[in-house]
Computed example of a mutant assay.
Amino acid sequence: MPTSSFESVLQSLDAFPVLGHAYLNHDYVPLDLSVDNLDLQSINVSSSQDLEAYIWKHMKTQDAKIAYGGYLEKRGIYNRSEYFNQNNPETERNIHLGIDLWIEANAPIYAPLDGQLHSFKDNSGFGNYGPTLILEHQLNGVKFYTLYGHLSHNSLNKNTVGDKINEGQQIATLGTAEVNGDYPPHLHFQIIKDIQGNLGDYPGVCSQGELEYYKNNCPDPNLLF
């Protein structure tokens, strides 16, 4: 299925909200964490506590419950971790490939579409995903995947690869900074066309040189929302 057709079909789906139906449109507010956001220059983004205070203040001033955004956003918040190769400008990974939904820890996470559990893993380490689930889906005979990062440890319990997952089924809860790679609580949600043999993990941030490939392989998650 050509990219344009695949994305058009994604956009036509009536997907279940990954945070559930408890929230209305006005509960969401966009959040800019790009290098172009001058407000971040006064924030110590290396500190999960300082970044969380900034995000929660942003939500409070907008009378919102969830902050969202980040697809293809070039960010400086990854400079704190060697995991993103920040010491080499040619391979530095700082372009975000999913959408982030910033909300309190332990918030329930739901499957947007029918599928099955492809894989899961605790991607531990400073700056990494922490507990992660990947679901496999079929769309007009085409296989694709959705990734859920920065979950709680409990989200990995009692899972079996191949388990059938129903649209709207709760699949996880969000983790805290202590387990999610040291970030303020949030869900990293990503669509992946070719999983490239990965299990429980897939790059969520890429370098400028890799951008064209990943932009094609990881369509805009907003198409489902």
Rank of each mutant, 00 (worst) to 15 (best):
residue 63 D to R: 08
residue 119 S to K: 01
residue 87 N to A: 12
residue 64 A to F: 05
residue 100 D to F: 02
residue 53 A to P: 01
residue 161 V to F: 03
residue 118 H to M: 00
residue 107 A to G: 03
residue 92 E to A: 12
residue 114 D to C: 08
residue 93 R to K: 13
residue 129 Y to Q: 07
residue 72 L to N: 00
residue 120 F to S: 02
residue 100 D to L: 00
residue 54 Y to R: 03
residue 100 D to Q: 03
residue 70 G to K: 06
residue 141 G to Q: 05
residue 146 T to H: 03
residue 135 L to F: 10
residue 86 Q to E: 12
residue 65 K to D: 07
residue 53 A to L: 10
residue 140 N to S: 09
residue 72 L to D: 01
residue 145 Y to M: 05
residue 61 T to M: 13
residue 76 G to S: 14
residue 71 Y to F: 14
residue 56 W to T: 11
residue 123 N to R: 01
residue 116 Q to A: 09
residue 160 T to Q: 15
residue 104 E to C: 06
residue 47 S to A: 11
residue 104 E to Q: 10
residue 98 G to W: 00
residue 65 K to A: 11
residue 78 Y to C: 06
residue 71 Y to R: 03
residue 159 N to Y: 10
residue 96 H to P: 04
residue 103 I to E: 02
residue 61 T to L: 13
residue 64 A to T: 04
residue 165 I to H: 00
residue 143 K to V: 14
residue 84 F to V: 00
residue 47 S to R: 04
residue 74 K to T: 15
residue 153 H to L: 15
residue 153 H to K: 14
residue 94 N to M: 12
residue 118 H to A: 05
residue 100 D to T: 02
residue 150 H to C: 06
residue 150 H to V: 05
residue 131 P to C: 09
residue 56 W to C: 06
residue 123 N to C: 13
residue 80 R to W: 14
residue 90 E to C: 12
residue 99 I to M: 13
residue 138 Q to Y: 14
residue 101 L to F: 15
residue 99 I to N: 06
residue 72 L to G: 00
residue 50 D to W: 07
residue 138 Q to D: 14
residue 127 G to R: 02
residue 47 S to H: 04
residue 118 H to W: 10
residue 148 Y to C: 12
residue 81 S to I: 09
residue 59 M to T: 07
residue 114 D to V: 07
residue 125 G to S: 07
residue 113 L to Q: 01
residue 96 H to I: 06
residue 116 Q to W: 12
residue 51 L to M: 10
residue 52 E to G: 12
residue 135 L to V: 08
residue 78 Y to T: 09
